[in-house]
Write a protein that binds this DNA or RNA. Structure first.
Lengths: 224, 224
DNA sequence: ATACAGAGGATTGTATACAATGTAGTCTTT
DNA sequence: AAAGACTACATTGTATACAATCCTCTGTAT
């Protein structure tokens, strides 16, 4: 019953979380033999796990040379954020058109809970972690576009989380982000798709500009 | 020198083109042993080729049950087109901002060539095949966003081509499509990003609505 | 001292063999 | 006759062994 999934899948998910959490650093090499020593089994499942990681853009593989954890340049990170900005804005527009009334009500309830949590918690830990993601997840699912969901949650999500720019951005201003979230939900509840898209675009744009500032800071810091 | 790429990569690209061309039909099963019999080698490279196909969403694999060529429902196809519509419109906006003057000039030259070809050829074969794709490719590359390029050309392109809706759509009206292309390039040359995005959005929207009509037709035909 | 060449080792790509799981076909039972 | 269970087969998942490629370290020559 616990052995329902294959060894390759187990190793894949373990490695994926390890990479996202930074326990395996960008640029670090993934030797197949080393994975065998660590997780047991043989090289075949390890190879398969590495290939799955490559499919999600978490590692880069070159023939005969091995696999390394992806190490994104600042330009590549900007590219990813640009795409995410566009796709999530799109998701928000579609969500305004396609979410059921019940889903909208649940979303409003979620924000009320967030508001309570921020008040009690000073908005430190809870909101920026599961709360923020939960909000965005629900919007994406509300788009009722499975491919969009797959691209945002499967392909882009891991990399974005890996670099932590999203969370570190919103940690500065949880109450402001909450206000933006509330206005987005208002637009969705009013079925105003254009406005909902616009507000989401601005909301994520704040993260992007914050990211770009951070990029400049870090590059000058490390460059000197 | 010819053996530079691995066997897995060769089998992958052969299978990918075979699937896209329809030589292997949607839903058809891909047995590892059958691939060994056809392409030679052993099961290991065949497995790897299948995994690469899965990474590009060309096949679906279920543990212990094998791999099948993806068979998209009408809803999934609509989802893909929706995403493509959004991403290519975005690419067009970015291209208007980021293409060099030389690239814009080359694009204008390309359209002139297309116009000549249509006049000579009645716009039957050439334009809808390489010409149309070439135009869209250049726009995407002009966005200077490599992730966007990867998503559109790598992930979505194969599936879209597999179902041929794009080509069959534009074959009806090559001269009209050319006119739309020309207006798009005009907007890019004028560095009017908003207009360029809008025009591209309308241009692809035509394909999408045509696709939806075709979807309804086919579903009613096969449903009776 | 530096740059280049070569040999050795380490790692990946491929092949083969075995184990585990899914599938189909038949037989039994209701 | 239809439904369900059991058995045999086929296919995938995994393990091990071999081949090909690349990386590194050392030694030599400039």
């Amino acid at each position: 019953m616990s052995d329902n999934q294959t060894l390759a899948e187990k190793v894949f998910s373990e490695l994926a979380t390890a990479i996202v959490r930074g326990e395996i650093r960008p640029g670090e090499r993934l030797s197949e033999q080393a994975l065998v020593d660590r997780y047991g089994g043989s090289r075949a499942p390890m190879r398969e796990a590495i290939q799955k990681l490559e499919a999600r853009n978490l590692v880069v593989r070159v023939p005969h040379a091995g696999a390394r954890v992806v190490s994104l340049s600042l330009e590549e990170l900007r590219d990813i954020y640009e795409v995410r900005l566009e796709l999530e804005s799109m998701a928000c527009r579609l969500a305004a058109e396609r979410m059921t009334d019940g889903e909208v009500a649940a979303l409003q309830e979620l924000l009320l809970e967030h508001a309570r949590t921020i008040e009690a918690d000073q908005g430190q830990s809870y909101y920026q972690k599961s709360g923020n993601l939960d909000f965005h997840f629900r919007i994406i699912e509300g788009s009722k576009n499975r491919r969009l969901h797959q691209m945002l949650c499967g392909d882009l999500y891991h990399i974005i989380r890996m670099y932590r720019y999203q969370t570190s951005t919103s940690s500065k201003r949880p109450q402001q982000a909450l206000g933006e979230h509330q206005r987005i939900v208002e637009a969705i509840a009013a079925r105003d798709a254009e406005l909902a898209e616009l507000l989401m675009r601005r909301h994520i744009q704040a993260s992007l500009t914050n990211l770009e500032q951070r990029m400049v800071r870090e590059s000058t810091e490390s460059g000197i």
